[in-house]
Nucleic acid binder design. Structure first.
Lengths: 241, 241
DNA sequence: CAGTGGTCTAGACCACCAA
DNA sequence: TGGTGGTCTAGACCACTGT
């Protein structure tokens, strides 16, 4: 589990920025940095690319690399770790305890939309299940999911009572680490209001999408209806090079 | 405006995928591709990295590069062009005509939050303005924005009647191409219901954030309240390498 | 024009995966 | 253990920015 050089370099540069090592909002140029750290310019470039992907710095060809002022002010919002891709999509948990209530589990014939989303042929069956997630016993999210029987036949109600993805990673050596997600919002339905304790005027946020195993196999189609206070989606949009 | 080699390579590979040139969900290995296209392996690697960033393929060390089945089925959702960063954040326009109505424009002393978001000192004034945007005369979003007077003193009501960012790019050679955005949802206020023609049970989507010039200068803080049908945020989450 | 980031190569060697 | 992707180097040359 050795970290690549460029990750260490990126961390070193990040530290220097945090400690206001650089007097201006501009980093030293890449050739100078390469000399200072005694590495090739390519490695510096890779490190800087990483920082740019994380929104910590902005690159501007011909002019230099610039520190994102947001990073200086509010490090936590940008302090990514490990494999993060520069996008934070999260249910605001604040370290509270999570509970899962399994509302139902069935095997059904998928309708056309589900079939298309999971790339199934006519004969495939899917598990269909609904779960209610809570934080410190406060309900925050209704999840309706579909998983093809053939990709995970051993699914059971017992397994659903805890995080499926953690189980897969720990017990089955299968990592679900890609997803295509669609975020929208809608007025709450009667069921939403009931389960999530919402007033009629209060909406739900919806996150729906396909989750993939890392070799591209579609694993699950899921539609999550969130209590509106728990939908929060932060991201950098970075159209610069 | 010559395209780099790796962009052309990425397009070529993308075309081959679209034309089902590769029989399986797996791409040929990088060394083979390098030979076929008669370029260095580094260039192939860069091209494949680009496709991975766009969510078109998944990489898996030690195993190979895999085609995202979503790309084969629904090319448009993934068919990024040019400088796109793998994130589609858009108001669904469908080619309709956009109108802008300027509701007000003032110069004010910023409150603490605005000051913090725009990195201002005590003495700085800001322009505060509210605009209503419509598509084919249907109102879809209310925008409340703040721009420091010192970074764009020539702001006027006339300028606000059209896209400010386009004006900056065309006339001032200033490009706003980075943003930190926060997406949430809320019940609609009375003003929302009035301006956006919403029922009391219908919510607004909120996109709020800071927009940066590409050298890192914070340019604008903006909070946009969208008619809920027009909030749609699609993205790939890719935690694989 | 000087400064600075972007692209590209050729090749060595490392790390992970599946059989 | 062979196949395949990941990291890294050293250096040439290109492209953009601002004075």
């Amino acid at each position: 589990m050795k970290k690549p050089l460029y990750v260490s370099l990126a961390n070193a540069i990040k530290n220097n920025i945090s400690k206001h090592q650089y007097q201006t909002m501009k980093l030293p140029d890449e050739r100078t940095l390469a000399e200072e750290f005694a590495v090739s310019r390519s490695s510096i470039k890779r490190a800087i690319q990483l920082l740019a992907d994380q929104g910590i710095i902005f690159k501007k060809q011909g002019s230099g690399n610039f520190i994102n002022p947001l990073f200086l002010r509010n490090k936590t919002a940008l302090d990514y770790t490990g494999d993060n891709v520069g996008l934070t999509t999260s249910i605001v948990t604040n370290g509270k305890q999570q509970q899962i209530e399994v509302l139902n589990l069935d095997v059904v014939k998928p309708d056309a939309a589900i079939k298309e989303n999971l790339f199934l042929t006519a004969d495939d069956f899917v598990y269909s299940f609904k779960r209610l997630r809570k934080l410190d016993e406060v309900p925050i999210l209704i999840e309706q999911s579909y998983i093809p029987v053939k990709v995970f036949p051993q699914l059971s109600k017992k397994l659903l009572e805890h995080s499926l993805f953690n189980y897969l990673e720990d017990q089955e050596n299968t990592i679900i680490n890609r997803a295509y997600l669609d975020v929208t919002t809608e007025p709450s339905s009667v069921e939403d209001q009931d389960l999530l304790h919402l007033k009629t005027t209060e909406p739900v946020g919806i996150m729906a999408g396909i989750f993939f195993v890392d070799d591209g196999t579609p694993f699950e189609y899921s539609s999550m209806r969130l209590h509106y206070r728990y939908l929060n989606f932060s991201t950098f949009v970075n159209l610069g090079k």
